[in-house]
Design a protein around this nucleic acid. Structure first.
Lengths: 144, 144
DNA sequence: AACAAATACTTTGCGCACAAAGTATTTTAA
DNA sequence: TTAAAATACTTTGTGCGCAAAGTATTTGTT
């Protein structure tokens, strides 16, 4: 009695993560519209709210994005006057990214969006904690 | 004694999933090069290996991608002669996607890549199962 | 001091991912 | 039996995400 059902795309962990990521970005979109931010831009802002006045390479380490991705994102945030990009006087190769007043001022409000989104998900604290840890394990081990 | 360390970007479940997704796509890239496939193209092929001869809308349901994303992906797979796109004679609005001989022939080999990738990750069967389930819960609940 | 190597960032090209607008076909209803 | 609405797909525009190539500055070596 082989009751195995047809194999499905959703049997895949990788597909599940991929789909969850797309779903999260879609769900954040209407919430972030109020701040005129995309999801990756929101992540960069969060990185800066954690540690301000860093150069692009540091931001790259924090976000896991490469410089070719970050440069245009940070430029767009500069256009929106949420941050400034100026050369490091000590080392002119480096660009120091600093939050502007308005970049800092939206921090508390914008961080609340995380709760708004998570409220839509029935997973409990423990499950989310585990999910986060397992994802970071994958990141760490695949980036070796 | 408040020993809480600085808040980090990686405290976020959403960031963890986002990073895991990027890491998975990066890790698959060299493996998929042999088949001249990108990760999303690989997912579409997997969907077809599960259920062949479907129209774009069905493929959209299976992959969670919208038609505007799928059309160009499927066209590229057609260019690579991995599948055909022909109008449904019953309903000429629909395009029926069918695997070609070569599209079918790489199935067994290409599906092995999943194991190759997962071997790099230390998570056990149980953890992966839970991770997958939790991600699908998020997808289901955010797409309401 | 001079030149090679390393580092930090930018630019270009390609393929997603999606919203919005457009085209074609079918269904529904007046 | 048409006109309106719905459905299926395509196209266009924007913003990632990354590889590869390019520029500028600094460091290391002779």
């Amino acid at each position: 009695m082989n009751l195995k059902k047809q194999p499905q795309l959703s049997d895949n962990v990788c597909f599940a993560i991929y789909s969850a990521n797309n779903a999260i970005i879609r769900a954040y979109k209407p919430l972030l519209e109020e701040y005129d931010l995309t999801f990756p831009q929101y992540l960069v802002m969060q990185a800066l709210w954690c540690e301000d006045g860093v150069n692009l390479t540091r931001l790259s380490e924090q976000t896991g994005l490469d410089l070719g991705t970050l440069t245009p994102i940070v430029k767009r945030l500069e256009t929106k006057s949420l941050l400034t990009r100026e050369k490091d006087s000590q080392d002119e190769r480096k660009k120091v990214i600093k939050l502007s007043t308005s970049g800092t001022s939206i921090k508390l409000e914008a961080l609340k969006l995380k709760q708004v989104l998570l409220e839509k998900v029935s997973l409990n604290e423990e499950a989310l904690k585990l999910l986060r840890a397992h994802c970071l394990t994958i990141v760490g081990e695949l980036n070796l």
